[in-house]
Amino acid sequence: MKNRFKTWTLLAVMLMVSLMGNACGGGDAADTGGGDFKAAIVTDTAGLGDQSFNDSANRGLEKAKADLGIETQVYETSQPSDYEPSLSRAPSQGSDITFAIGFLMTDAVTNVSSQNADAKYAIIDSVVEADNVASLVFKEEEGSFLVGVVAGLMTKSNKVAFLGGMEVPLIKKFEAGFKAGVMTVNPDAEVIATYAGDFNDPGKGKEVALSQYAAGADVIYHASGGTGLGLFQAAQEKGAGFWAIGVDSDQYELAPENTLTSMMKRVDTAVFETIKATKEGNFKSGITVFGLKEDGVGLSPTTNKNTPQDVIDKANALGDKIIAGEFTVPTTDEELESFTPPK
């Protein structure tokens, strides 16, 4: 028995000693590398690999690393209470600008930006009014309008569908813009809108998509994060003539035979441009809007694979009118009610 005690004690002591010995050195690991400018992103709890929002932000960060030669760091979080510590620690780890990915971090950014007045922050999809916070928001309705135009012109059944993640204001912007786009080019078409109640359930997404196809829709646009992966499976299963429209990133690869286009939300552009401006000493607090004009939203480059050129031209022509300010795309049900399609 003594032996056993010795073994356990020895192992425990070894562990303790090795931990003690390195405890002081622990902090060095992050300070390696060359560049003198550092940018960090704090993901929401979906983390990297969501094939959507966080990944897009990370692409912008990676691009900045490659093109601008800066240091980067990603802080993933597993629960909402992690947002504040991560945002608060990033500057002390040398980050010159720290991005909060998503409106869920609004409160956290509000708190940390006042506590760390010297640090610079940026938040995606929300607005925090502080001198050291850049608020980066998108006109999702404008991009959604364009894919609505594509859907309205491509449908043969005169029935198209919208698959939403959760019925929150942000996603309603996608829905309203999409419906306005369909209405503009095809007043007779009906739009079915269904919400899956989840942003991360491909099984549910597939179920909803199949039911929408069964109800007669032949084009479905999703704004539902990971749930939407099920839409592409459903489209592939149904085969030719059943179309899917992706969101956030170019989702063509998910179903090459059945994807018309994707509504690109260039979180990567927003992240990259903000890092670039900050590095050059042009950090701008307040709201920066990324719409069609700023190339913050738009049709994916692979749109021409399955969509005829005249449809794309029509969408782009309407897009030019939006950029020129000839009409405004609705963002809510109420605005949609009073929306008059442009001639």
Partner: peptide, 12 residues
């Protein structure tokens, strides 16, 4: 869970 945050930003 708290240590995990330290682990990813200090030890990568």
């Amino acid at each position: 869970s708290q240590g995990a945050l330290g682990m990813q930003n200090m030890a990568d």
